[in-house]
Design a protein around this nucleic acid. Structure first.
Lengths: 246, 246
DNA sequence: TGCCACAACTTGTTATAACAGGTAATAATC
DNA sequence: GATTATTACCTGTTATAACAAGTTGTGGCA
């Protein structure tokens, strides 16, 4: 097996390993912005895998916007962007660190409370059933950019209450520590005005434009797991995506 | 050839035909929300294509959020959403009609002007070179939801000036009439406040929250083609996406 | 009737193979 | 030297095949 650099505690699919190896080289600067990557044939030989495995890895990176392909020419590294990417479900800290940014969280609060109609419906609970509400502020370069309110079932909330939610992403805790694989999220993006409390935490003025994200994250088996309400400062953050025509 | 229902003026790939046939059945109501689709084996037999062709078609629909897959169980129709989908590059009217909504455009204006620094850089022009600015308001159910300002090179703008931009999407004109295949777009989403003119067109108040989309669309060969600034009313529209974990 | 094992069915991963059409380099010709 | 044709290389599409892991149904046994 020629080049399987990924050493993890769990066996990984081949395309996962190839993808992460290429990502590492892009983030390390071995492949620069706009530089052409090795061809599929070269990657097949280098990693000792079939072409379809290489293509799956490359297409995942295309989907994330890290590279782009030109028919007949090859694959190229995209221009880096400090963004929350919509092509792939990942936590904030996870997304920023993949792009080389350092993010910090601050706890606003963690309480158990009865589920509202909206939260109950999203998490498939009875209205009034106990849920855990976790609130955090997100900082980039020591500047608050987002306020995140998460709702999970009380059993999961009890476990999470014992975790270091300042330094760690909930997604990674759930996957790595609790062994619950994540599936997909349904994400809604809209624009709102900052309320007083939001403005204070985000160090902006009341009435300032905010991006509001509602995200319902599911386990891989389809069960709803976590409902998030996230507001981002409109002047300090944007979502970016590369969208393919087809 | 058993089931190739798509009859178009241009030859289409097999996975495109399978995908569009399935889309049609979902939108026609033949496959209902949460209903299970035929298995991959069944679709292979029904369409007389290989499994990889069926999977490509299904995965594209997954990518768009129209269906979701559960390992070992099958594929299911997702809950329908009246949204501008971020998974796939398409014009506003195109997106809405695929979801069964009727959208209408109104021309705000079409002028040739010197390219600003931003527009010139995006379209790879010299600053001051002539570009065409096309401005339109978008209506859903007779209600203004978006204001769209597009910049294209003057040669393309001259041709577009002769088209019916009220009834038709620019993307479809460019692809179908001019034979220029589209590739990808780089999209940025942020939140802003409505300026006076925007508020008037969108029938909302000055200072209301708007979603601001900046989109640079490329030809398939990578050349930049069109720069769009689109603002959507925050209270009447949102973007939604289904994001996979991986 | 309930439980367990096995078979059938499902999607996911990976392999090999061939052809199509686009791009770039090289060789041949004027 | 410039132009054209050919070759090599590139990604895109499609096919067949096999194995892995998850899900569901069926049959046998207690």
């Amino acid at each position: 097996m020629p080049e399987r650099p990924f050493a993890g505690t769990q066996p990984q699919t081949l395309y996962f390993q190839v993808r992460e190896a290429l990502r590492g080289r892009i983030l390390d600067g071995e492949y620069r912005q706009h530089q052409r990557l090795p061809s599929e044939s070269e990657l097949m030989r280098a990693f000792g895998v079939s072409r379809i495995t290489v293509r799956q890895a490359l297409n995942d990176l295309v989907k994330e916007g890290l590279i782009f392909k030109l028919a007949g020419k090859g694959s190229y590294v995209s221009k880096p962007r400090p963004v929350q990417n919509l092509s792939r479900l990942q936590g904030f800290g996870e997304a920023m660190s993949r792009l080389g940014y350092k993010s910090v969280n601050r706890m606003v609060g963690l309480v158990n409370l009865p589920a509202s109609t909206r939260v109950a419906a999203a998490l498939l609970l009875e209205e009034g059933e106990t849920v855990t509400e976790i609130r955090r502020a997100r900082y980039l370069d020591n500047e608050p950019v987002a306020l995140d309110t998460s709702y999970v079932r009380a059993e999961l909330g009890k476990r999470l209450a014992r975790e270091d939610l300042v330094a760690r992403d909930i997604f990674l805790i759930i996957e790595n520590d609790y062994g619950i694989p994540l599936g997909h999220a349904d994400v809604s993006i809209s624009a709102i005005l900052a309320a007083e409390e939001q403005a204070q935490w985000l160090q902006t003025r009341s009435g300032a434009p905010l991006l509001h994200i509602e995200r319902l994250t599911h386990e891989r088996n389809g069960n709803p797991l976590e409902l998030d309400d996230i507001v981002y400062r409109g002047d300090a953050f944007s979502f970016q995506a590369r969208v393919e025509r087809d």
